[in-house]
Design a protein around this nucleic acid. Structure first.
Length: 121
RNA sequence: UUUCGGAGCCAGGUCUUCGCUCCGCGUUCUUUGCAGGUGCGGAUCAAACCGCACCGACUGGAGACGGAGAGGAAAGUCCGGACACCACAGGGCAGGAUUCCCCCUGAAAGAGGGGGCGCGGCGCUUCAAGGUGCCGCGACGGACAGUGUCACAGAAAAUCAAACCGCCCGGCGGGCAACCGCAGGGUAAGGGUGAAAAGGUGGGGUAAGAGCCCACCGCGCCGAAGGCAACGACGGCGGCACGAAAAACCCAAUCCGGUGCAAGACUAAAUAGGGGACUCGGCGGCCCGUCGGACAGUCCCGGGUUAGUCGCAUCCCGCGCGUGCGGCGCAAGCCGCGCAGUGCGGGGAGGGGCGUCGCGAGACGCGCCUAGAGAAAUGAAGGCCCGCCAUCCGCAAGGGUGGCAGACAAAAUCCGGCUUAUCGGCUCGGAAACUAG
RNA sequence: GUCCCCGUAGCUCAAAUGGAUCGAGCAGCCGUUUCCUAAACGGUAGAUCCCGGUUCAAUUCCGGGCGGGGGCA
């Protein structure tokens, strides 16, 4: 399933809202921020924004690869995430040296901490 | 064979499963209703904005299908162009860049190739200076156009140079003498200082010395075989008069208008009628000149929109296959028109490969390839082969097992160069060491 | 993407015409003073972002790299 513009965070206020108002879960190789756009009636698509800064990850090659892996992670599990929520995934340097299955386990472990129960894993 | 440095090339390959971005839209299937308009309500001084209801053309979305998908440096942004706007850009000054020693290639370039000249290293030769062979390097115009600099040390540091210690001459005084002291004169060979001491080496000469004289070399001038040219084998003359540094200012020659795809063009939507400051404004920093205007314009504050298309990146033609529509036919099928994809063929643009020509940069022919995003497209895995290491079997070729590694780094308007980063491999020629014939 | 600017001790600044020992304040360390600390006084260590070039000589001039900052719809 592709990621259209409606499924991505595109503007600075959207990123800031997710980071300042949402929950922050440290997963070691990356940081997950999660927020419901509407607390009362959660609906709409699940949106995601991926961040990989030059200071923490490295050059353009490493930044692109880190963002691709985080996007792949989101695509594989987006169906089981709570509707109407925004995610921000921020990469760290350790992300590139880690096996994908290890990253996946950490992501699922973090998702179980969310207050809203996922539809089905 | 090993090691070292140089030049050029490649940048792991292949298969399978699930995914990503772009293009295409015929066929098959599914789903939702987009853009827009009208009305009402909320917010606002008023708008954009937000919510609800109705109408909703062309169409839009998703899946499946077909095709394509990062580099030699895509990087740094150091040069040059294309392109766009400013007035398709004028004159002068200021400013900037380059070097021009010559020829050639190239659209141009702080680009490339060859030659000349200079410098350094090694070898040979020479008493030495120097000469010569090979290799490497060179931001390689001008210091009698001018201004300024050369610290410290040293006697003297830049112009008809300069006597500190020495050397030499005669005079006076002392001493038996060797010699010592004093004032005067000659002298740049020796010492010492320094980055640099005003031609070098050898010989003659002299009281001691000195281009004072001679030979060779260097330097300057004149001629000159040869060479497209820079240059110059070689010959003659002069007789030393010529310090370094222009990556100090500068001078000469040549070139340069500015801004850069966030350039810029268009579509849609939307309002405002505001407040303050300044004054003709634009055209490169200034002047000239020129263009436009004088109910004009610039800047700041405040407010709205911050959506989309183009620029943007292979194009065109013919035939076959495929497919849609229409007509004819009982049907198979045939005919006409349209369409993209694919296959074949042809042509044009760019790139790299091979071949020919050229010393070379390059030029010309034959098959191959040509991505285009927008918080920005390649991810998740597995198998085999290639590389390295360890170990085992084997005389060897080779085979088995285990582990590790494949660098540097990703287009962002495009192209030609430069510079920098880079694991490993291949090719070419060079030097040194060892072994064999 | 594109255009421009900067780089000196741990920090803030000097040295500016190229001249050798790169200077000052605060911070650091040692000592004097004090019962102890602070203040004061004396002493001390510490730097030209990196690599190359021009020059007798480079923080300075030139080239390349690295790092940091800013402007542009």
């Amino acid at each position: 399933m592709r990621l259209r513009a409606g499924q991505r965070l595109r503007r600075t206020p959207e990123f800031r809202a997710a980071r300042e108002q949402g929950r922050r879960i440290d997963c070691g190789a990356f940081v997950l921020n999660w927020r419901l756009r509407d607390e009362e009636s959660p609906a709409g698509p699940v949106r995601v924004g991926v961040v990989a800064s030059k200071a923490s990850v490295g050059g353009a090659v490493d930044r692109n690869r880190a963002k691709r892996r985080l996007r792949a992670l989101f695509r594989r599990h987006q169906a089981s995430l709570p509707a109407g929520s925004d995610f921000v995934l921020t990469a760290r340097a350790a992300l590139l040296g880690m096996e994908f299955s290890e990253i996946e386990q950490r992501f699922l472990h973090a998702c179980r901490k969310l207050p809203v129960t996922p539809a089905r894993a």
